[in-house]
Design a protein around this nucleic acid. Structure first.
Lengths: 347, 347
DNA sequence: TGTTAGCACTCCCTTTTGACGAGTGCTAAT
DNA sequence: ATTAGCACTCGTCAAAAGGGAGTGCTAACA
């Protein structure tokens, strides 16, 4: 059987209507809703075909039809553009530039949740491969050395090292120079044992400190490389009856709290999503088990300096894909402009 | 009317029974449940009295009774101890010492939530008044100065300052000494304008940087002084039918997500709670509006070095106060022992 | 051959009804 | 002061009834 033009129109009408009302939609509704001027009986025949093809389904006999995952997929892939043009400008989101990356991300998540009434998540931006930019040791107390580690992209990590030996400012200065000349500009897998041996030798009796600093560097880079994720609007889940079932809602809320599960969603979409960087997971397409009744839309964003992160929106399958995607596009643009020329930041 | 011994026993029985079953409890049940050997009719009369006095109430005519807030309060204040002794040792919680404060707090929240099946929250420990311990400026890039600010308790904040002028290492060293000699050991309200003027004068042409550093210090201390709060087990809210109503649950989940609302709960209990530092808010006693159907139990904990924080558990009014309080006591002891002698930490 | 009107049928949802049971308050007897 | 007895209230549950939305099929129509 072929999906001719009329069938497409009917499918589109079914989906549009269902997105609005959340109720199964019947043939009579379609007969009036579209400009096809067809009787409900004809629509019924066509709908039977569409069901056979797997685009829509009946919750039970003698109910209207609702879109299947396959139907949503077709809609998202090929039918949505047309609506996009006739839509008015959305209320502008306000994302302000923030000093602290953390503040910015939390704000984005919140604004997005308020705008869409769905649950949102965002991962901190990362350079492809974190390189060490600068190390600074300082004596902060007797027996305590503060190690400040700056990673490419001006991400800063601190670590306090306990040392047995008493260290004077001069040796500290030497150690600083030693560490910086050897390590600057290197990524974690470029720091090898031979190099460490050389440094330890040069450090003489203070070789123990070198080891500790290296450990701290390794940990700092590793910490930077695993995703920090912020979420907002979790309570919006309860807005949608199809998700508000206690069992499901509890699992979802848990996923948003544990956050690590969300990582799969916020990493996958790395480069794949065509040119726009926007990707849609419908129902069972999502890699996260607890989201099999949801749809997830993710978008990669860029802050400058090659720093890329991903932001995502989670809602019911019956979500307003159109609005969500437009909102995410607008966000991409805003973030891009906000951090166009420089990349100041800290943590 | 007086609350004699028999009435107390009956009230206690009603509450115990209701905590277990969650169902309104009737006179016949009590008649068998207690060792008073009274008929249901007598119990009925007593219960009518108790209702008149406001300790219990009827959801509707011809239903059993449930405890009122006032009833719970009496129970928590005077009736719980007896049960405490006859109770077996609870499953030991495992809280491990962590390098990072953040990790520790998250772990405590999670463990507590798993153990009790309620929602939990914890505020980061704070010294009474944050004092500056150490400042370090470093040149990290052309036009970028990294300011590392260490606050009492080894809390570290970073800030990258943009500077127009080119600064060599020597001036930077001078500035470091200048800043440290003037500012070390001071709290935010000890840094006054006169002092700043003196420093600016000594800094000469680099006075602009001094201003920026002072701003950074002020912000760092302020940031440290407002509560960081971690939560866990939010999804447990849905476990309890009396909270799982969409409207209420949504508000609650939102409170746990926004976190700042929780601050009132985690600050209030500062010193008030007798000797144990444990405080119970029942229903409308809670200062947080969205928790009027909940009970909240908070406990202050101490990590050493005068660092105090508060941890809290939020559940239905019908929560197992006994177990919750015992769990919190055990946690207090564990944390105390874990950080008994030193106070290493960073962020 | 595609479209449509008509019709019987299915199935869900809501309301109604009645039975049941748990629990109460009151009264009178102990 | 306590208790047995009884009428009454009210929520819950299940079954029954009614209504409505929607379908599939058939036959007529252009």
């Amino acid at each position: 059987m072929e999906l001719d033009d009329r069938k497409k129109k009917i499918l589109q009408a079914v989906i549009r209507n269902y997105l609005e009302t959340g109720e199964p939609v019947g043939s009579r509704t379609i007969s009036k809703y579209t400009d096809l001027n067809l009787s409900s009986a004809t629509i019924r025949n066509e709908m039977a075909d569409l069901e056979e093809m797997g685009y829509i389904l009946q919750p039970h006999t003698s109910a209207g039809r609702i879109p299947s995952d396959k139907g949503y997929r077709l809609y998202v892939d090929t039918m949505m553009e047309e609506k996009e043009r006739e839509v008015v400008e959305m209320k502008e989101m306000l994302v302000e530039r923030q000093d602290k990356m953390e503040t910015l991300l939390k704000q984005v998540a919140r604004v997005l949740a308020q705008n869409t009434q769905y649950a949102t998540m965002i991962s901190a931006p990362q350079a492809k491969r974190s390189k060490l930019k600068f190390i600074q040791l300082s004596r902060v107390d007797a027996g305590q050395i503060l190690a400040v580690i700056v990673i490419e992209g001006n991400v800063i990590k601190n670590n306090i090292l306990a040392v047995d030996e008493e260290i004077n400012d001069e040796t500290l200065l030497k150690l600083n120079i030693l560490l910086n000349t050897h390590l600057n500009g290197l990524s974690i897998d470029e720091i090898n044992l031979a190099m460490i041996a050389v440094m330890k030798q040069q450090a003489g009796i203070h070789s123990a400190i070198v080891s500790e600093v290296i450990d701290a560097v390794a940990e700092a880079i590793r910490a930077e490389e695993d995703l920090e994720i912020y979420t907002s609007g979790t309570n919006n889940i309860l807005r949608y009856p199809e998700l508000a079932d206690h069992q499901k809602a509890s699992e979802l809320i848990n996923a948003f709290e544990e956050k690590q599960l969300l990582g799969t969603l916020l990493q996958d979409s790395g480069g794949e999503g065509e040119n726009t960087g926007i990707q849609v997971y419908i129902g069972s397409e999502s890699p996260v088990q607890s989201m099999r009744d949801c749809s997830v839309v993710t978008a990669t964003y860029e802050l400058g300096g090659g720093m890329k992160g991903t932001v995502g929106i989670v809602g019911p399958k019956r979500m307003d894909y159109d609005k969500v995607i437009r909102t995410l596009r607008s966000l991409q643009v805003q973030l891009d402009e906000l951090y166009k020329d420089d990349e100041k930041q800290d943590n």
